[in-house]
Design a protein around this nucleic acid. Structure first.
Length: 237
DNA sequence: TCATTAAATTGTT
DNA sequence: AACAATTTAATGA
C-alpha cells in the first residue's frame, strides 16, 4: 500500500449524471447552484491517494462522486484506526470546514475514485445564504453522529457476522450515501479492509447473510435485500 | 460483433 | 497464504 501519495488535481468536468449524484446541489437556487458548480474541483484519485491528511489546513469540503474512500484516524501508537467507509454520494469534512481548522483524520481511496471538493469559502457563502444548504449540513451532522455511535457498538462486537452486517448497514445508509442505492460496488477485499477482518471471514459472513436472504452477493458488489435486517438482526453464535 | 486473452474477484482449502 | 474457478474488461480481427 503506497500511503504517501497526495491527491493530484487533474481537473475534469462532471457529466450531468455525475452532477445529479451530488445530493445538495438540488437544494440550491439556480444562482447558488451555478456558483457551486463553477467552484467545484473535480479530481480523479488513484488507489491509495490521500484526499485529506491529519494536520493539514482545511481546503475543501469533499464528496465522493464515484469510487470508495476510507476515513481513518491514528491512536496513540500511530496505528491507523478506520472510522468509516465512504461510498458514492457521501460528503465529509463539514465539521472541519465550519471551524476552518485542520483535518482530524486521513481519507484515502481504496480504489480509483472521482472526488469533488467545494472550497471552504464557497461552503461558507452557501451556509450564509441558502436555507436548503443549511438543512443538508444539519442533517448530515446528525446522521453522522448516529453513525459513529453505532460504530462504537460495532467495535465492541466479537461476532464477525454481526460486524459485517452492521458495517454494511452503515455503507447502505441512504441519508449519508444517496449514491449507493440498491447495489454497493465493493469487493470483499475492500470490505475486509474496512471492517478489519480477513477476506475469508468476510466471505463467510457474506455467505451467511446471503443465506438469510438479507443480501445478495454479486461479482464486485453487494445487493441489499433487507436493510432493516442488516441493522437489527440478531445472530446466533 | 465475436473470439481470444489478460486481469480482477471470488470461493475454498 | 495459496490455489483454482469464475466473471469482467480489453484487445484486435
Amino acid at each position: 500500500m503506497s500511503s504517501d501519495q497526495t491527491l493530484h488535481q487533474r481537473r475534469r468536468t462532471l457529466t450531468p449524471a455525475e452532477l445529479a449524484g451530488i445530493p445538495w446541489l438540488a437544494l440550491l437556487s439556480p444562482a447558488e447552484r451555478d456558483i457551486a458548480v463553477a467552484d467545484l474541483q473535480i479530481s480523479e484519485a488513484q488507489p491509495g491517494d490521500l484526499v485529506c491528511r491529519i494536520g493539514r489546513p482545511v481546503t475543501y469540503w469533499f464528496g465522493v462522486v464515484d469510487g470508495l474512500l476510507k476515513m481513518s484516524g491514528e491512536n496513540a501508537d500511530g496505528q491507523a484506526l478506520t472510522f468509516a467507509g465512504l461510498p458514492p454520494g457521501g460528503w465529509f469534512g463539514e465539521g472541519t470546514v465550519l471551524k476552518r481548522e485542520i483535518y482530524r483524520y486521513n481519507v484515502q481511496t481504496l480504489r480509483k475514485s472521482l472526488v469533488a471538493g467545494l472550497p471552504v469559502d464557497t461552503f461558507h457563502q452557501l451556509l450564509d445564504h441558502s436555507i436548503g444548504f443549511n438543512r443538508f449540513v444539519m442533517n448530515q451532522l446528525n446522521e453522522r453522529l448516529a453513525q459513529f455511535i453505532a460504530a462504537r457498538e460495532i467495535d465492541r462486537m466479537n461476532n464477525p457476522d454481526l460486524r459485517v452486517a452492521r458495517s454494511l448497514a452503515a455503507l447502505f445508509n441512504p441519508a449519508l450515501y444517496p449514491g449507493v442505492g440498491e447495489v454497493l460496488r465493493i469487493t470483499q477485499q475492500e470490505l475486509a479492509y474496512l471492517v478489519g477482518l480477513s477476506r475469508q471471514r468476510v466471505n463467510e459472513a457474506l455467505a451467511a447473510l446471503a443465506a438469510q436472504g438479507t443480501i445478495r452477493v454479486e461479482y464486485g458488489g453487494l445487493r441489499v435485500l433487507d436493510l432493516p435486517a442488516l441493522r437489527s438482526r440478531i445472530f446466533s453464535q
